[in-house]
Amino acid sequence: MPGKGKLSDRPDFHIIGELVEAGSRVLDLGCGEGEFLAWLVANKGVVARGVEISAAKVRKAITRGVSAYQGDLDEGLADYPDQAFDYVILSQTLQETKAPLHVLREMLRVGRRAIVSFPNFGHWSVRRAMLFTGQAPKTELFPYDWYNSPNIHFLSINDFESLCRETPFPISKRYFLSGSRRVTVAPNLMAQTAVFLLG
């Protein structure tokens, strides 16, 4: 997973920040240190909740004033009533979840809409690394060795789109990014990051 830095370091946050309507109820799954939620509260006046597994990060998030709690993502979602939120956000974390399909279903149960962003495993840099080294790809997008990577499910933009077709999950909007630049041509090859608005 790319580091969850300041808002400016994470181009998908800019997209998500624009998607979220002012004053809405937002749940951020894997909220990290709560920077993004704090930004949404300050700039969009949202009612924010966060879930994060790491005690150290939850501490930072609470210190920031975010109502975050320490908990497992799957277990945490189960407790929420249907449609408790306007948006449930899963930013750069889908590839780390044990049961991605279950998480996506739960997101659309507890939220009116789901916003999912993930690093694109179909990006040319990943394909090239695999082709030339014959090893599990280690790139800017996926900087880990195979044995210490938090990523356990690798997916490309095409993978996600076909899952949404088959399940089905209604895709309302899609954004493809290379760095902070929008990608319009051959996104599955050219985009590093994808952002989908479901529901």
């Binding site: 909740r49 005690a55 501490r59 975010v66 975050a68 709690y69 908990g71 009533p81 408790a84």
Partner: peptide
């Protein structure tokens, strides 16, 4: 949380 209350926990 089930009641969607405002709760922070660590």
């Amino acid at each position: 949380r089930r009641m969607n209350g405002d709760v922070a926990y660590c």
